[in-house]
């Protein structure tokens, strides 16, 4: 069993502190939802964990199976088992989805050890079918000209192929219509299992109707102000974020 431990984490962008002492542990097999209003530091947290150079960690630690990842480069963290499903994935002109995912998998092999191409495509098509992505997409450039829903499905496809230990999903539901939301959620539900831990960042409770979390955390001003089970998400939905501000922010 694996664990992702975030302890008393402080993250700044430039001079401004965004995450102000956040602690959270995700074990494999668990799905955690991190909820909170915009600007509270949810996306900053996820990008800092995977090592985006714009974010400076000024205190605390992130440990994967007991080992700090903070001195690791972003690609090392990814190969160690961390995955971020981006809220706004980059467009990569001229690099096809098939080649991109292949490069990601190849990076996890020893030098000189080639992927089996036919097995790779078989698995890729199987995952694409699961996510209802047209097989023609394999030869399309990564995210170039994709709709919002297509980009999000492409993120989940990468996650399904890479099989990380921990997936951070940043607002995966944003910009999705209900059909796309269902497809994406079904995909994530199929990937759930003892080998995967998920930290799902979302603004809305709606996603949690489709991907039912084991734990729910509410984030406010750079910290987790309350944790509970899925009923917390329902309570939050009913009372709104003003409740968080009034009742929880100073708790």
């Amino acid at each position: 069993m694996s664990s992702l431990e975030i302890t008393n984490l402080h993250v700044s962008i430039g001079e401004k502190e965004i995450v102000k002492g956040l602690s959270l542990t995700v074990n494999s097999g668990e799905v955690h939802a991190l909820m909170g209003p915009n600007g509270t530091g949810k996306s900053t947290l996820s990008k800092a964990i995977i090592g985006h150079p714009d974010y400076t960690i000024t205190g605390g630690d992130v440990r994967l199976d007991g080992k700090s990842v903070l001195q690791m480069e972003p690609d090392e963290r990814a190969r160690a088992g961390l995955f971020l499903a981006f809220q706004y994935p980059s467009e990569i002109p001229g690099v096809t989805i098939a080649n991109f995912i292949r490069a990601a998998l190849q990076a996890r092999h020893a030098e000189g050890e080639e992927l089996d191409a036919s097995a790779y495509y078989k698995r890729l098509y199987q995952k694409m079918d699961m996510l209802k992505i047209d097989r023609k997409f394999t030869s399309r450039a990564v995210n170039a000209g994709f709709s919002g829903g297509e980009k999000k499905r492409c993120e989940i496809l990468q996650m399904a192929m890479i099989e990380p230990k921990f997936a951070l999903m940043d607002e995966t539901d944003s910009g999705l219509d209900i059909d796309a939301l269902k497809i994406v959620s079904e995909g994530v539900n199929q990937l759930r299992g003892p080998g995967l831990g998920v930290l799902m960042i979302t603004h809305y409770q709606r996603l949690l109707n489709y991907i039912v979390p084991d734990h729910v955390h509410v984030m406010w001003d750079g910290r987790i102000v309350r944790s509970g089970d899925k009923s917390l998400a329902v309570e939050l939905e009913a009372k709104g974020y003003t409740w968080v501000k009034k009742e929880l922010a100073h708790a």
Partner: peptide, 9 residues
């Protein structure tokens, strides 16, 4: 960064 976040050197 996007490519590196997928484990690519």
């Amino acid at each position: 960064f996007y490519l590196q976040a997928r484990g690519i050197t």
